[in-house]
Nucleic acid binder design. Structure first.
Lengths: 342, 342
DNA sequence: ACCGCTTGCTAAACCCTTTTAGCAAGGCCA
DNA sequence: TGGCCTTGCTAAAAGGGTTTAGCAAGCGGT
């Protein structure tokens, strides 16, 4: 309500001390020799006046603004990865920091703009997030700047947070195999382009690698591999529909993501096949969609929230080590897997 | 790359002038009497050194930080309303501003914390956003602070941005009526509690009011009104399933939101009814879900992006007027409405 | 009486920018 | 020659905090 903000000078005046004394006391410095009496007077004055330090002014001197720049292509505003920002916001809050969120839409000009905008505001560090994990190009940044890559990697900025897709891929296979599936497993959404093109998505390569490694170790082979260019529901629908037309032996679908699985559900229903009694389905991401389906879709989750949290913690961790910090992908069991019938 | 940031003093030195001169020239002041020669020297120096002003230091003097606090319950991190933040981010960027995004989860303690955090950073104004439009309680804020309520309203802060639900409700009815539906229209998701309890959701009341007004004006009546407590897919499923068991005359479903409609689709499929040939469906929100369904769901969209944009524009508009700024809800036509069969 | 140490505190510089007040030099007029 | 007005610029304060250097007083020891 009061219109004028309380300043440190106000506190010092009321305590009958200098601003220097007030500053040191409020910052809890122990190397200060100020009397217990002085401590009490300053603390009381600050409390009575409701003093709050001006972070900008303090930052001018200390070069710490308790503010982190969070620059992403489309993370904040798409549902796919909003967990990233949620985790980051929460971790930042717990550390007394705040996030300056900017979006670039992936446009290099806007990326440069965004970097300039956060540097102009003296942020303590920058997190670069992307929706689909990939190698991200980043315009030049002053060397002293702390940078963490979130769901991305970059040679110049070696600290990155990524999902542990290799283990995740293995886990998906394990779910089917442990339920007893050995034959009639189809892979939906494998895409050779993606598998090879590391730039587009480094981690999807790992996902597939994990799948293939686990299949091999268990002595299993896919009955079919349906590839498609993109991973939207209608792709899953089309591909699954075509598959079912040809083959009567399909007992399980391993879908590369939940949106494909969503389309696959529709195609299975069209064919009069029931999930999970006729066909089991497992996929990846734990998209919100997965919980809407009936039966609920069992999926290997992208740990977005944990990743976002880690990115902030790493940024603030003074002696963090470079490298890829892999976050485990938890298995979310719902109702889409059953042992094969008959 | 250079490790030390270029300051105004550097620019002034290189131009052979005082920082005062440099400051005035770079700020484009016209009341200054500085020579054309001086202008050229300063501008050149700034360009050569790549000078960027320190926003925090400037803000200390000018009390403008080009930064807006965006405080929400769960807006940024849920898919439902992420358009709000997307629009706000974009409008802010275009105005040379930046958003400090904080989330409170609706917890009053965290709301107070969040307000303190942004005020400590001297933001130019605060936008309070909520996921479900409602009357929002806001802890005390210094009077001089600019505040805009986004998807919410509040007596103490009279500038708010809301969807035009009254017109939206009318539009949904008009879609069915214009397609020829007069009988067998069921309302799915009406909820008396919500309809009356303005605190929980002021705008849903408007949505229903619009629906009822348009029905009345066209001389139509609902064949059934199924209410449910919440609006998740399984509620839509349960309610629709129960409805179809009793009644064979249902030709159209007006669902209060897309998630209900999603559940209704599943129930219709269970009953062997086809959308839109047997039953037309229309709903609200334009959730991403709506485009995934087959056939695509015709819906009256929540204009989240436009709302977010407006909130920033209003905040920065120096002579904005108090009151509710209503943003039109566009009709998104997909394939879920057809004239009634037979 | 003088030296040196400790204790408890403050003055002043500093961070970077904006803004106010005013100086110095030149021209014009009387 | 003096007074006044422009012109073109700068010194310095201000904004709110942190930090360094150092002052003053009190005390113990010689």
């Amino acid at each position: 309500m009061p219109n004028k903000r309380v300043t440190l000078a106000d506190v010092a005046r009321r305590a009958g001390l200098s601003t220097a004394a007030a500053s040191m006391i409020l910052n809890g410095r122990t190397d200060t020799r100020l009397s217990a009496e002085a401590h009490a007077r300053v603390n009381d004055a600050a409390a009575e006046l409701g003093y709050r330090p001006n972070v900008a002014a303090r930052g001018l001197r200390t070069r710490k603004t308790l503010t982190i720049g969070f620059i992403s292509d489309v993370v904040a505003t798409t549902r796919f990865a909003s967990g990233l920002i949620q985790g980051a916001l929460d971790a930042a809050r717990k550390a007394g920091h705040v996030l300056l969120v900017l979006e670039t839409g992936g446009d290099p000009a806007r990326e440069s703009e965004a970097i300039a905008a956060v540097l102009d505001r003296q942020v303590d560090g920058i997190i670069f997030g992307v929706m689909r994990a990939r190698e991200l190009f980043v315009p030049d940044i002053p060397q002293a700047t702390n940078v963490v890559m979130l769901n991305a990697s970059n040679k110049k900025h070696p600290v990155s947070v990524l999902p542990d897709e290799l283990s995740g891929g293995r886990a998906a296979v394990a779910l089917l195999a442990d339920a007893g599936h050995r034959n009639g497993i189809a892979l939906i959404g494998h895409n050779e382009e993606v598998e090879k093109n590391l730039f587009r998505s480094a981690t999807v390569g790992q996902r597939i690698a994990g799948i293939r490694a686990e299949m091999a170790e268990r002595g299993l082979r896919f009955a079919a591999e349906e590839s498609c260019w993109d991973w939207e529901p209608h792709h899953g629908y089309d591909v699954t529909r075509a598959l079912l037309k040809d083959r009567g032996d399909i007992r399980a679908l391993l879908c590369m993501n939940d949106r494909l699985a969503f389309g696959a559900y529709q195609a299975l229903a069209d064919h009069g096949l029931s999930v999970p009694h006729d066909v089991s389905v497992v996929s990846f991401d734990n998209d919100e969609l997965a919980s809407y389906l009936r039966p609920g879709l069992t999926t290997v989750a992208l740990p977005h929230e944990a990743m976002g949290r880690s990115s902030v913690e790493l940024l603030l961790d003074h002696d963090r080590r470079p490298g890829h910090h892999l976050i485990p992908m938890p298995v979310i069991e719902r109702g889409s897997i059953l042992p094969p019938a008959g």
